[in-house]
Design a protein around this nucleic acid. Structure first.
Length: 633
RNA sequence: CGGGGAGUGGCGCAGCGGUAGCGUUCCUGCUUUGGGUGCAGGAGGUCGGGGGUUCGAAUCCCCCCUCCCCGACCA
């Protein structure tokens, strides 16, 4: 890393940019890339994009197979085109937008001193076999064979390759810390690709990996990414919520997701209405209530409760029968303890039964459960399984039979709300019988606690106790302290200052690049079309020439476009002849360049119309002032 | 992988045993030029694929593929 100092380079870049801008010879956000030899500016002037020759066809109607706004509008606006199940072709405008997004991400990575590399997407099986992921990844992994029958895969992420690369080249603590990243096409054989770019089987991801000697170093690398991601999403114009995520069985500790709040998103998260707590539902930790003393609690009693197969019928029965009624109030589902038995399919192919007890007013959330028991997968407990375990009375299962020490021998875990001294109505392990006043800690003792009950709106925040709300979002980024799992599996060690071998600790950090394009489109659009933030837009200004082919508007627009180009602005010029103004206006709104200039009937008075795509606001501006206005905008 | 819907010119749709249609797009000519202008002429389709039934299949039957929506999984 020695000689190359990105931080310094960045400062230098800023300075040069200011100079260029002052000279009016550089477009505002010109792309400049870091290389070992210094900064190499791209061509300083981008030629005007002319709609008369642009490889573009906008559609008058929505494509029928597109549901979400971003998919609909990106196809209709001629940005992308479906080419394969879960795969899209980028057309010229789309590719410009895509590269802008990529550039912003790259700049923010480089700014932190992270270094870019590039792996193949097509990889041999061996490293993934060594890490165990060849088996663990399951059907989502694209697998193929070469002509000799050797196994390959199309990489879904590159932890193994990064780990091996560093192992290849580095062997001393002096080489660390290190962060390297790539922007790569990734492949996942999604069961259901959908929503256009939001979830494809081929997509582009920026993934970076940090390598540190100790936990403090890992934390520092993690924090750097956190900050870099915040800056990146700000520049992309994407609102986001940072939520705690499950690091689960992956062996990591800290893990956070950057979610863009969108109803079309597939991630459910909770957010506190009072404090800044936010978490993926899988990661929500319930705050257990205080235990209750056993003194004075009535004794448990078994009751005949025929025809009560559901929680609701059970509660109704208890409220209806005088001898079962609660002395002070109506019974509710929250007074019951619901017990569910599932089968865990372990990665090694074996199965274990697991029983879960949750308050009867909520269901078991299979996603939360799976996050807790991963990498095992959940299967329903079948009729045959019930038959094989006679201690279980289906529909009347209770703590009396559950537990490693009890008749069923099935491990029994309960919700954190089930604390010592709480009394429950629950199954009595005999058909048609329930037990009431069964007290936790006195009458039964489960094998442990599990976070598997569903999270409901209004549940108390684990941090401050205020009511939480539930929202949907799309995962745009994930930062994750991997720890030593991959380094251990693949033997990545370095010598420390005492000459002792140390296993390196790692972090992995991803941003969905192609997904970001869709998310930005989704966030910004309206019923007329797309609205890009300026930095990712395909142009700074969309100049529309109206009037007959022989009118002065077209030459005036050409002239204006040339002046803008010279001033460093990126221009999209609608110079199509014989296209009516209505069509041009509609296209300009569909395409979503943030600023639109109409060279039209005001030209006779020396003015053009300046339109803001987002607000719809428009005003006449003297032709002579327009370039300055745009440049300073 | 379960449940539901659908595949017919670039796009949107109709046709549901008897010669493949409409709108839009595209091409030509005229017309129009501040919100998808009007008129006329034209181009463009292995009716998702394969098998079967039938004198005859876009249409009926079987298998497969693909797309969309809701669930189970992921940036």
């Amino acid at each position: 890393m020695g000689r190359w100092c990105p931080r310094l380079r960045f400062v230098e870049r800023q300075r040069t940019r200011t100079l260029y801008r002052a000279a009016g010879s550089l477009r505002r956000d010109t792309t400049r890339r870091a290389t070992r030899d210094g900064f190499r500016p791209e061509p300083e002037v981008r030629p005007v994009l002319r709609m008369s020759t642009l490889f573009l066809r906008t559609l008058r109607e929505d494509p029928a197979d597109a549901e979400v706004a971003s998919h609909r509008l990106l196809v209709r606006g001629g940005y992308i085109r479906r080419a394969a199940p879960g795969g899209f072709t980028w057309l010229p405008l789309g590719w410009i937008v895509y590269r802008n997004v990529e550039r912003i991400i790259r700049e923010e990575m480089d700014r932190e001193g992270f270094q870019e590399v590039h792996f193949p997407a097509l990889l041999p099986k061996d490293p993934y076999e060594a890490s165990g992921r060849w088996a663990d990844y399951g059907d989502n992994l694209f697998r193929l064979q070469d002509r000799k029958g050797a196994d390959f895969l199309l990489a879904p992420t590159h932890e193994e390759m990064f780990t091996l690369l560093v192992k290849d080249l580095y062997s001393s603590y002096k080489d660390l810390p290190l962060v390297i990243y790539q922007i790569q096409t990734k492949y996942r054989d999604e069961a259901r690709p959908r929503a256009g770019l939001l979830r494809g089987r081929e997509f582009v991801m920026k993934d970076s990996y940090s390598f540190d000697i100790d936990d403090e170093g890992l934390q520092a690398s993690y924090d750097k990414h956190r900050v870099a991601y915040q800056r990146t999403f700000d520049r992309l114009g994407l609102p986001y919520v940072i939520v705690s995520a499950m690091s689960g069985a992956m062996g990591g500790s800290a893990s956070e997701e950057f979610l863009v709040p969108l109803a079309v998103g597939e991630d459910t998260y909770v957010r506190c209405s009072a404090c800044d707590y936010a978490a993926n539902t899988e990661a929500v930790q319930v705050q257990p209530p205080a235990p209750i003393a056993f003194d004075g609690l009535p004794a448990a009693a078994v009751m005949d409760t025929p025809d009560t197969p559901t929680i609701q019928t059970l509660v109704d029965l208890f409220n209806a029968r005088p001898e079962l009624r609660h002395p002070d109030r109506e019974w509710t589902a929250a007074d019951t303890l619901k017990n569910l038995v599932v089968k865990l399919r372990n990665p090694d192919g074996t199965s274990t039964a697991l029983a879960i007890g949750v308050p009867g007013d909520r269901d078991v959330d299979l996603k939360r459960l799976e996050a807790q028991v991963g990498p095992a997968e959940i299967e329903p407990f079948s009729e045959e399984d019930f038959a094989a375990n006679p201690a279980l009375a289906k529909g009347y299962i209770g703590p009396g039979a559950l537990g490693l020490e009890n008749a069923s021998g099935i491990r029994y875990l309960v919700d954190p709300r089930v604390v010592d001294g709480t009394a429950w109505i629950t199954g009595a392990d005999q058909p048609g019988q329930h037990v009431m006043n069964l007290v936790m800690g006195r009458d039964f003792t489960p094998d442990g606690v599990i976070e598997a009950a569903e999270v409901l709106p209004g549940d108390p925040c684990p941090r401050c106790g205020s009511a939480m709300e539930i929202a949907r979002g799309i995962e745009m980024g994930h930062i994750f302290q991997l720890g030593r799992k991959y380094a251990e599996a693949l033997g990545l060690t370095v010598l420390d200052e005492n000459g002792k071998t140390r296993v390196v600790t790692m972090g992995s950090y991803g941003i969905g690049v192609s997904r970001a394009v869709a998310a930005i489109a989704e966030i910004g659009c309206d019923d007329k079309g797309l609205i890009w933030p300026r930095e990712v837009a395909p142009a700074d200004v969309h100049i529309v020439a109206t009037g007959k082919p022989t009118d002065p508007q077209l030459p005036a627009a050409e002239q204006l476009a040339a002046e803008c180009e010279a001033a460093g602005l990126r221009v999209l010029l609608d110079d199509r002849v014989g296209v009516s103004p209505g069509v041009k206006f509609n296209d300009s709104e569909l395409l979503g360049v943030p600023t639109i200039v109409v060279v039209g009937r005001g030209l006779a008075d020396g003015v053009v119309e300046l339109k803001d795509r987002r607000t719809g606001g428009r005003r006449d501006v003297p032709l002579a002032e327009i370039v300055g206005l745009l440049r300073d905008a």
